[in-house]
């Protein structure tokens, strides 16, 4: 269905934006962890974006994207009032949410927005939500206000120390885990959404503690409905499709090495496509 953009907010000008779309059918069904696939033009590709928030009453869904290539650069030219040609969803399995006590929700980069929807779900289920977010610097931090509204605690790390802890998000996470253990707190689950190296670092960090850890994978997808296997990942002994079996998996079972390699399958073509788009823009 063609979907109108109701609002656009530039979170980091030129790099990250938030769109609120009028998509009542999707909003009615979407749960934390779900994503959509969108397409901007008849010659466009299908790109998956995680749903950052929904409002079933208003019939809206919220998306946050980072401009990384041709399609997101094209999307960045869209404004409120414009219409997106195709939006398909909600896709993927929703996050498994149950009352487990404390849940640490880790987000990096635009992954913070995707993590927000999951954190909100845990908060609604009565869990003690601790949001742990990181970015290179303060001006690149997303969704801090939204997360503050739904989290019992928000912990921040920036590479340059312009806000919160100076260093990596995993360092803050480790401190918080230690602190919890010393206080006898029951940490039921850790959720991490962000760049693959961050998710892998979180998985390695939590493994020795034996705490259930979930990551949301953003593998390359085409249809997003289980028809092609482009997004396949090795999880334990099995090959799973991120689009229909995921996108969330047990972080301790994911073969991140393989996943990172597969992410590069089309890197040459992606660059070519972006250059082609830029040339067309300048014509």
């Amino acid at each position: 269905m063609a979907v109108p953009i109701l609002h656009k907010r530039k979170l980091i000008p030129g790099r990250v934006s938030e769109l609120v779309l009028e998509a009542p059918q999707i909003a009615a069904k979407a749960e934390p962890g779900n994503f959509i696939i969108l397409r901007l033009a008849d010659d466009g590709e299908r790109i998956p974006l995680t749903i950052a928030d929904t409002d079933a009453a208003k019939g809206t869904i919220t998306l946050v994207y980072l401009v990384v290539g041709k399609s997101t650069a094209h999307l960045e030219t869209f404004e409120a009032g414009d219409t997106i040609l195709d939006v398909c969803g909600p896709l993927g399995r929703p996050t498994h949410i149950e009352p487990v006590g404390t849940v640490l929700c880790v987000g990096g980069g635009t992954g913070i927005a995707a993590m927000h929807h999951i954190a909100k779900g845990h908060q609604l289920a009565g869990n003690h939500v601790v949001s742990v977010i990181g970015a290179r610097s303060e001006d690149l931090l997303l969704f801090e206000k939204e997360l503050t509204a739904i989290s019992a605690e928000v912990l921040v790390a920036t590479d340059d120390g312009s806000r919160g802890h100076k260093g990596l998000v995993t360092e803050v996470l480790e401190q918080r885990i230690q602190q919890g253990i010393e206080a006898g707190e029951s940490i039921g689950e850790i959720v991490a959404v962000g760049p693959v190296p961050m998710m892998r670092a979180v998985a390695e960090l939590t493994r020795p503690y034996g705490i259930k850890t979930t990551v949301s994978l953003n593998s390359i997808m085409v249809d997003g409905i289980g028809m092609c296997g482009s997004c396949r990942v090795t999880v334990g002994d099995a090959v799973r499709f991120a689009c229909v079996d995921g996108p969330e998996f047990d972080a301790h079972q994911v073969d991140f090495e393989e996943m990172m390699r597969r992410q590069c399958t089309f890197s040459e073509q992606e660059k070519l496509s972006y250059d082609h788009f830029c040339r067309k823009c300048h014509d």
Binding site: D43, E45, V222, F266, Q269, E270
Partner: peptide
């Protein structure tokens, strides 16, 4: 996806 017309169409083919 019309990948045989890449890069005029966005979807690449290996």
């Amino acid at each position: 996806m019309g990948g045989y017309r890449f890069p005029d169409y966005d979807t690449p083919v290996f």
